[in-house]
Simulated assay, not measured.
Amino acid sequence: MERITIPPEAVRMISTSSKGDQSKWRVGNKWIKQNSRGYEGQAEVLASLILSCSILNEQDYVTYKPCEILLPDGEISVGCYSYDFRGKLQEVTLERLFEANFTSTDLILNNKALSTAEKFEQLMQKVQLFTGLDVREEVTRLLAFDALILNEDRHTNNILFLFNPIEKSWRLAPIFDNGLSLLSDEKDFPPGKPLTILKRKVKAKPFNSSFSKQLSLYTGPAFIDKIMLLQLLESRDLGFGRAKEVLLSQLNDPSLAHLFFEGSVFND
């Protein structure tokens, strides 16, 4: 495993999730994230491996790699790293996009009179009004991917847009920040307990706490090559631990079968 040394002058940043804080650093053009609640780094790496077996292009998702982290005080920790995908573009989260236009996603997401589909459509209408982008298929595919990996942290600051200040143009950022998935939070999902029990405890975001209801928003084509994915999992010893076990369990879920290419069959 690659070891990355955090220089003394590197500024420790705090990445805030729905579960708390995670330490990260920028060293050169790399972002390094330290595990804080379990095996977030393994989950990140495995999530990007899944997407490498999909119809998405490499620029459509962030690739994460495992690493050891040598801290300035000599402590060795573990986590993952990725390369900065922003370049000179400005990042604007979904939440900040709404705030910049003097509104809030809460007005839609917390409206109990709206169905999941209605919340989604109203949010997407606003996004299209603010940016000119129709990203309905991309976002519903993201939600379907979240259902597969049981991502419990797809809040409105984990859906990102990139703005080009010169061209005054917008685009959806690549899929990133999948660390709180595959039951990586060992504080909330203790090792040793049956997966069937733990999986029932995971809640989705942002349109509904039910993964199945968010999954139903995706009506696009299958986008993951299950056979390729299984072959990669068998051929590479990447030390995924329980993350791999959770994924294999998910691949057996009939409700997710339409996400995989026709003819991709998984057997115990």
Rank of each mutant, 00 (worst) to 15 (best):
T156V: 14
T196R: 09
K119A: 13
E118Q: 15
F145P: 00
N151I: 03
V45M: 04
L172K: 05
S77G: 00
P221M: 05
R86I: 05
L123W: 04
G74C: 04
S181P: 03
N158H: 03
F261R: 14
L238H: 10
Y218C: 05
P7E: 14
R171P: 00
D177M: 02
E95T: 07
Q42S: 14
P72W: 08
V135I: 11
H258K: 11
E95W: 03
L251I: 12
L198R: 13
C53W: 01
E167W: 01
D134N: 14
A173S: 11
H258S: 10
V135L: 05
A144M: 05
L46R: 06
E75L: 02
T156D: 15
Q22N: 15
K201Q: 12
L70F: 05
S54G: 09
S82V: 00
Y81I: 06
Y61T: 01
L51Y: 13
L97Q: 11
F261D: 08
T103V: 10
Y83V: 09
Q59M: 07
S82Y: 03
E40C: 09
L248Y: 05
L162N: 08
P165F: 01
F261W: 09
S36N: 14
P194G: 03
I4D: 14
G28C: 11
N252C: 07
D185Y: 01
K199G: 03
L70W: 04
S17A: 13
S249Y: 12
L217M: 09
L198Y: 12
L56T: 13
E2I: 11
D237S: 10
E118A: 15
L109H: 14
S249G: 15
I32G: 13
K30A: 12
E95Y: 02
W170I: 02
N151K: 04
T93Q: 08
S77I: 00
T63F: 07
L97Y: 11
I32Q: 14
D253A: 13
T103Y: 07
T116Y: 11
A113H: 15
T105K: 07
L107K: 15
V246H: 01
P8Y: 13
F266I: 07
D268W: 07
T219C: 05
S181G: 08
K226Y: 00
K112D: 12
Q34R: 15
N252P: 00
F130W: 09
S210L: 02
I159E: 01
S18P: 03
Q34G: 10
D146C: 05
E186R: 10
L51I: 13
N35Y: 07
S235V: 02
L107T: 15
F240T: 13
T140K: 06
V246A: 01
Q128L: 05
I197M: 06
G220E: 02
